[in-house]
């Protein structure tokens, strides 16, 4: 049981008033540990909202430094942070937002040699990365180590997300074959409306909070697809693939670093 100061009661009052949260819910949030892999378009808003909510421990993993082109959407960083390590910039923003939150800065690239150890210290993982080899690695590691996580991606005016909890379909159930480099356009090539990270990243944060609180329906077994041009959200039911190499019974998945083979496929 956490001893709430008057200041904490004031800070989290809008949470505590909710029947689904209350004092016990806010205690759960303050005791929770969420890891965000990638402090970019998706990870930035996710981290900020989780910090505002009072998630007690927020891990942020990213090896990069802040680039000017990031600022159009990675709102956790500002102009003065260009050139600074992303995890440090993110940590500073979070500390200023909420002193109740402890940020653990993992200044590294997540790979098959370190991911198991890193995720072991967290209750929920947010995939905010931008490349498929690491997205598949995150999927496999979370399934193997029974860690719930939120998968998401954005491009141009579209975004999508699904949530994995043990027993639900994993990302590989839906997308069994990793596309080679060049087969799928990146934000750098095709562009992205800045707010897409905010819309989808905040949904990822909402899923993390719902998981922590144990309320509502998660996007488990559902791919939520959003198109900002039409303002249409679609929730598509997806099933576990019986022969999924990651999550089917007896799959025996091993964590490897997927080197996306370079190809000369035309982009679609």
């Amino acid at each position: 049981m956490i001893d709430f100061s008057d200041e904490m009661l004031e800070r989290y009052s809008r949470h505590i008033l909710l029947k689904e949260v209350g004092v016990s819910g806010q205690e759960k949030i303050l005791s929770a540990r969420v890891l965000i892999i990638g402090a970019g378009g998706l990870g930035a808003p996710a981290a900020m909202y989780l910090a505002a909510a009072g998630v007690g421990t927020i891990g942020i993993a990213d090896a990069d430094v802040v680039d000017l082109s990031n600022l159009q959407r990675q709102i956790i960083h500002s102009t003065a942070d260009v050139g600074k390590a992303k995890v440090l910039s993110a940590q500073e923003t979070v500390n200023a937002m909420n002193p109740d939150v402890k940020v653990v800065a993992h200044r590294l690239f997540v790979d098959s040699s370190n991911i198991a150890e890193i995720i072991s210290g967290y209750d929920f993982i947010v995939d905010g990365t931008d490349n498929f080899p690491v997205k598949y690695l995150i999927n496999d590691a979370c399934v193997l180590h029974k860690k719930p996580f939120s998968h998401a991606g954005i491009i141009q005016f579209k975004g999508q997300t699904l949530t994995y909890v043990p027993g639900a379909p994993c990302f590989r159930c839906v997308f069994p074959n990793m596309p080679p480099e060049g087969a799928v356009p990146t934000c750098r090539q095709a562009g992205v409306l800045g707010v897409m990270g905010g819309i989808i990243g905040t949904i990822q944060a909402a899923e993390a909070l719902k998981y922590i609180l144990g309320v509502g329906e998660l996007l488990a077994g559902k791919l939520l697809v959003f198109d900002a041009l039409t303002m249409n959200f679609r929730k598509i039911n997806v099933n576990k693939a019986k022969t999924c190499p990651t999550c089917s019974e007896g799959a025996g998945i091993k964590l490897i670093d997927y080197a996306a083979p370079v190809c000369d496929l035309k982009k679609h």
């Binding site: 009661l9 008033l17 004092v23």
Partner: peptide, 13 residues
């Protein structure tokens, strides 16, 4: 208000 009800919730907890 609304801290009044927030404090009541804490006491109820």
């Amino acid at each position: 208000c609304p801290i009044t009800f927030v404090k009541v919730k804490v006491a109820l907890e």
